[in-house]
Deep mutational scan, measured.
Amino acid sequence: KLETFPLDVLVNTAAEDLPRGVDPSRKENHLSDEDFKAVFGMTRSAFANLPLWKQQNLKKEKGLF
C-alpha cells in the first residue's frame, strides 16, 4: 500500500514540491480512503470505472492533476 498524505500536501502542488515517492500523475493514489471519498464523492472503485477522460477532468477540477 502506498503512503498517504493529507489533502493540502497534494492539492495544487507542483511535481517538484510533492513528497518523495509521489507520482505527480497519480496524486489521488496517495489520499486516504476517507479523503478520496470526500474529494471525489465516490469510492476508488467507482472512480476507476469512469472513462479516463472523466477521471482526468475530475482530477483537474479538484487540483489533483
Rank of each mutant, 00 (worst) to 15 (best):
P51I: 01
D33H: 06
F5Y: 15
V9T: 08
N49W: 07
N29T: 07
P19R: 03
Q55T: 01
N49V: 12
K54H: 12
E34M: 10
L2T: 11
F65R: 06
W53Y: 10
A15H: 11
S25G: 10
T4C: 09
D33N: 08
V11P: 02
L64I: 07
L10G: 03
S45M: 14
A38G: 08
F47S: 00
D8A: 14
L31G: 01
V11M: 13
V39A: 08
V22W: 04
F36Y: 01
K37R: 14
D17A: 09
D35L: 05
F40Q: 00
L18G: 04
F5G: 02
K62H: 11
R20H: 15
V11I: 14
T4P: 07
L18P: 04
K62V: 14
A15P: 14
T4D: 04
A14D: 10
D35M: 06
S25L: 15
D33P: 07
A14N: 13
T13D: 06
E61V: 09
L31C: 02
G63M: 05
V22H: 03
P6I: 03
M42R: 01
R44G: 01
E61R: 08
K62M: 08
K60T: 09
D35N: 05
F40H: 00
K37C: 14
T13V: 14
T43S: 13
E34G: 08
A14S: 13
Q55L: 01
A15R: 11
D23M: 05
S25R: 12
A46W: 06
G21F: 08
F65S: 15
K27Q: 05
S25I: 10
P24F: 04
K37I: 14
E3V: 12
V11T: 09
V11F: 06
G63I: 01
P24N: 05
A38C: 11
K62E: 03
P51Y: 01
E28D: 03
E28L: 04
N29F: 12
L31Y: 01
H30P: 01
E16R: 10
T43H: 08
S25M: 15
K60Y: 12
V39R: 01
D23V: 05
Q55I: 03
N12Y: 06
K37H: 15
K59D: 00
T43A: 09
F36M: 01
M42C: 07
T13K: 12
L2W: 15
K59S: 03
L10F: 03
G41V: 04
P6M: 03
E3C: 14
S45C: 14
